[in-house]
Design a protein around this nucleic acid. Structure first.
Lengths: 380, 380
DNA sequence: TAACCTTGCTGCAACGTTGTACCAGTAAAT
DNA sequence: ATTTACTGGTACAACGTTGCAGCAAGGTTA
């Protein structure tokens, strides 16, 4: 501090003894790598080597001395300093449509579990499925030094985040399969939506249903398109003409993805479908929230779910088992998917060379409950 | 770099041209405060003053020059460097029992919204209501430099986190009212549980119900105790003897808080209560998940919710309106509470002197839907 | 005119960590 | 005896930001 002896006192300035803006910085834990070094009788570099570089670079006795000192002092590395120095940070981002949706909340919990096991934290962001919010969030995360993000988007195009990916952001897209225009380094992780919807539809066909409807919001998102394909594939395989399938794809154009309103959407769909001449005996819903809405709509019409009209959902949220009647649905292996997402993210961040784009599809599982039953006798 | 001319070459070592461990640090955005300073023709200190200290400390023209330079270069301050220097960080923690519960997911979303408006991020943690996880999370957050946390705990005692609070951690306890042993600087934010349960119970009494049950898991958590008090208060006020109230307080001792299983708990409770001789005509549930489970249990018994047995929930989660029949419930002003929580947190972090402990109780609102109806005629 | 104050800016050291470059000391190869 | 290699460490300069201390220039007061 006083490098050249006492600091020269400016004869023109009075002493100002009160420091209003003192840093008042609360020490993160008070103890730094220097104190550990002194305690262990080594240099800070050696402690750093112990912590990061090879611990093989020192004698066993030195190693234990350092370890003991760290223990004794309760030393914890200062993350800010580490990040400043290395540019790395032990945090990944998670962008979901909305944690208010139990499916995403659940996914967040599993991802956190996976991340925590590797000493990573998860920074959570709600995009509300708005591309602009997605972009701003990713920019924010990037500026924070975060280099890996799990993006739950479902949007067909990722153009809005392309610049960041090109700058080096590692992106794992969840609930979305690869598209033609995707960046070359993208990893996609998703349930096999085609198989899932196929399972659901085949289940209904086996029960004897022939007039089956598919209900969703706009079909613009990737997974919805795929689920629809699984639906038509199954019909075709059963010898039905998919062109004659009943498709209810509502929702205003201006708000085509509404997650929260999926239930309301389903209810409306049920009302309309059950009033029509060609009334379906079974309905495949785009997800569980939608299916719960459909169930409510069926009841509104004075019909019984699982008897007059069967309903299949998708996701298997906790509430599916709780509904009246419990919902038959397609279960996503959400824990496995979260773990895989984090594992891929980590390998992307660590490796200098980004491996080429790839997709991981996990097989879903049909959970049969009481919302589906044999097709009622045709009464025509 | 080459401060003293060419670095002396060690005659004993061959040149090792391959640097395996190069830092490869991706620049956060490439542009630093130095480049902004050069672009604006001022010193880095002036740019820093513009960013933090008073911008009144410079001429208007200087101010605009700096602002322009920042714009032109797209400068964003490096948070790690800032944190290292100041010890501050623009992140608050949020510890919830589990985001898999829609109520907490929703709360997280609102808190994020409030935080984002002030440039703060939210780091989310799932405690699963385990005191030990709570403690470890808070320690982790503290080590990360985070000085403010919203803790959604409901545990009567906060002893397990006391050391951190004493070290300077600002804590806002959510969904929990003040307790005798609380730290002196704690802020409690909660809905008025007594009033809420009172509203729910009074509503049932007005409908003519007299045999009303209260269903919850263990009563050890703070808010559950209070809701129970609101329940008994209302009974008393109606001239009934609370000692004769039907109280179902189940759940194994070893897992007394199960959030995910609240629904299963409710279902079991309904089964047991409806089999008893003194069967209730109405049930007050500890929360909506529990109420949905109770509804399922009532249906299991072949009875109609809202006609044979009325059910009131608590929280007003999205699914309450979706159930069959839609759930009458007590709505928590969750957005207001989240905003208040963040506001208090911020003032605690900013102010050097922590103001004394206080509690904020927000008034809940009864939302009447179809799960409650007039008490059935006594058929005895 | 001397003494002091105010304004508007800059210089500099630090925050805690890391990894490269270096270096003694010893062992092995020439 | 000399060269080379390996081992087990240390010294030091960054990373980007901040805010105190300082300092010219001009203004105000005595």
């Amino acid at each position: 501090m006083a490098r050249s002896g006492h600091p020269a006192v400016n004869p023109y300035t009075r002493i100002v003894p009160i420091r209003l803006n003192q840093p008042e910085k609360l020490d993160v834990s008070g103890v730094t790598i220097y104190q550990v070094a002194r305690e262990a009788g080594v240099s800070p570099s050696t402690v750093s080597n112990f912590l990061n570089g090879r611990p093989g670079r020192m004698l066993p006795q030195t190693r234990t001395r350092v370890a003991d000192a760290i223990d004794r002092l309760g030393y914890r590395p200062n993350r800010a300093a580490r990040q400043l120095r290395t540019g790395r940070i032990q945090v990944v981002g998670l962008v979901v449509p909305s944690v208010a949706n139990p499916f995403w909340g659940n996914f967040a919990r599993y991802l956190e579990r996976a991340a925590l096991a590797d000493g990573y934290h998860v920074l959570l962001c709600n995009s509300e499925r708005e591309p602009d919010r997605e972009r701003r969030y990713l920019e924010e995360l990037w500026a924070d030094g975060i280099r890996g993000v799990v993006l739950c988007s479902s949007l067909p195009s990722l153009n809005h985040v392309l610049p960041l990916v090109e700058a080096g952001l590692s992106l794992v897209a969840f609930d979305r399969t690869a598209q033609a225009g995707d960046p070359g380094t993208l990893v996609n992780i998703s349930v096999d939506n085609v198989v899932g919807a196929h399972l659901a539809t085949a289940h209904l066909l086996e029960l004897g249903h022939r007039r089956i409807a598919f209900v969703s919001g706009s079909l613009r998102s990737v997974n919805r398109r795929e689920r629809f394909r699984g639906f038509t594939d199954a019909l075709e395989q059963a010898g039905l003409d998919p062109a004659e399938a009943i498709v209810w794809s509502g929702g205003a154009e201006q708000e085509p993805y509404g997650d929260l309103d999926a239930a309301g959407l389903g209810r409306t769909a049920a009302h309309e479908l059950l009033q029509s001449d060609y009334r379906p005996t079974a309905i495949v819903a785009i997800n569980d929230m939608c299916a719960l809405g459909i169930s409510a709509g069926i009841r509104d019409a004075g019909l019984r779910v699982g008897e007059d009209v069967s309903v299949v959902g998708f996701d298997d949220i906790v509430l599916a088992d709780l509904a009246a009647p419990p919902l038959t649905t397609v279960r996503q292996p959400i824990g496995d998917m979260a773990a895989a997402a984090f594992r891929h993210l980590l390998s992307r961040i660590d490796e200098a060379e980004a491996s080429p784009s790839q997709s991981l599809l996990l097989r879903p599982e049909l959970v049969v409950r009481a919302s589906t039953g044999p097709a009622p006798e045709p009464r025509e």
